[in-house]
Design a binder for these strands. Structure first.
Lengths: 68, 68
DNA sequence: CATATTTATACCTTTTAGGGTACAAATATA
DNA sequence: TATATTTGTACCCTAAAAGGTATAAATATG
């Protein structure tokens, strides 16, 4: 698993049958950002991630740490 | 409410009776970052927020959007 | 298998996050 | 209330995030 957040976004995007450029446009972020996000990049801005998650009705919040 | 994440960190820090400089040091981030974070700054890096949350046994994850 | 669509990678530029630090404001304590 | 501690604000600097875009790689489709 690359990243829970990445997986969430990738899955929800496919559920809606959107391409990366389409999601970028609708979420109001750059295409490159969507790509990096879906690939699990960690050094991304929180507000930008939220902008994408909002499109799916989600947002970032504090959760318990994974027992990896 | 400034920000759920900000409040979480501020509260947990006080529970452990730590000052901002102490938390910054232990979490391995800059003091200024802790200050901005506790004041609800949204344009922060996800990995840095996680660095702080890890100290409290938490992390960022996708949650349902708030009905504000 | 050829072709079209989608995704990944790479380059350049601008903006800004984060660290450091100094000082003011606020809060706690003696 | 005077003093010490903690927090907030402001400054400079560097590294890199994000946008745009072109192209290669991968995947889907005919």
């Amino acid at each position: 698993m690359e990243s829970k957040i990445a997986d969430f976004i990738k899955e929800r995007r496919k559920q809606l049958e959107l391409t990366q450029p389409e999601l970028a446009e609708r979420a109001g972020v750059g295409l490159r950002f969507i790509r990096e996000l879906e690939q699990g990049k960690q050094t991304v801005r929180l507000d930008k991630v939220n902008q994408v998650l909002h499109f799916f009705g989600g947002q970032l919040g504090v959760v318990e740490m994974e027992i990896v």
